[in-house]
Amino acid sequence: MDPDNFKDFKLVKKQQLSHNVAKFVFEFPTTTSVLGLPIGQHISSLDAQGEDVIKPYTPTTLDSDLGRFELVIKMYPQGRISHHFDHLAVKGPKVLTLLTQMFKYQPGQFRAFGMLAGGSGITPQVPSSKGDPRKPKDKTEVHLIYANVTYEDILLREELESLTANYPDQFKIYYVLNQPPETWDGASDIQILRCGPPPMNKAMAANLEDLGYSPEMQFQF
């Protein structure tokens, strides 16, 4: 990666994940090349008109994935990039920021991560969930709540569930849906217990319902 100059990569595969989200796979010049992007950082890209798009794209692959990198992107009808990919010019790394805070992944820095994601917001969470495969002693726990509208909208489901299978003591995921199917067994067996002053309870009730936790799944002391 070069933080100041754009490098061009060829699109080799596009996989539709849902009605408006697709996975784009870009190849490197050699099968052993890596992107060199630290966990918790992102890239910026050029749009079809050659203008710098100031929007973070976080690959869902790590440097252990040789010869390629993947982006999972939500496609909007008037999107200036997602409908025009045949190659991609990117530069980076750039640090993900939230207000004045910067996120840099340090294995073992925390005992556990609590993650909340909705829709395509899962993309920056996946690399952090995988951690650094070169540091197997990292025992950081990950607890992820992933909210979507329907079951079909859940992105990277196989990848996420492989993490729960391979690291059952470290990775826990809880799916919540706004429109669950009749046979849904995701978060229906979860009960949220709330206790606090009225303003807090009111705010938390609304936020939890937005995440897919119905009033019946919440109890206020």
Rank of each mutant, 00 (worst) to 15 (best):
K14C: 13
D2L: 06
L88F: 01
P124I: 02
Q109K: 12
K14I: 13
K202F: 05
Q191E: 11
L99H: 05
L208D: 14
P56N: 09
Y57E: 01
I54T: 05
Q109P: 01
L71M: 06
L11C: 07
Q41R: 10
V176T: 15
P93W: 00
E216D: 04
L155V: 05
G212C: 02
D153L: 01
D2P: 06
A203Y: 13
Q218D: 12
R134S: 08
Y105H: 10
G119K: 12
L35E: 10
T30S: 13
L177M: 05
A147K: 00
L62P: 06
E27M: 06
V126D: 03
Y105S: 14
D65S: 09
D132N: 11
D8V: 08
H143L: 11
D8L: 05
G121V: 14
G67M: 04
T31D: 14
V176S: 09
P198E: 04
K55V: 08
S120T: 15
P77A: 02
N20I: 10
M204W: 05
P93L: 00
P180S: 00
L96G: 07
Q170H: 12
I145G: 00
S214V: 15
D138E: 13
D47L: 15
L116S: 07
T31A: 11
M217T: 06
Q16F: 02
L37H: 01
L71R: 00
A89K: 08
G186K: 01
L35N: 07
G92F: 04
F26M: 10
Q106I: 15
S129P: 05
L99K: 13
F24P: 00
G67D: 10
E182N: 09
D2T: 09
R80G: 03
N207P: 00
N178C: 03
D4G: 09
P133S: 08
G108S: 11
P59Y: 02
M204G: 03
L177C: 07
L35K: 14
H87R: 13
P29S: 11
Q15I: 10
L88W: 01
K202G: 04
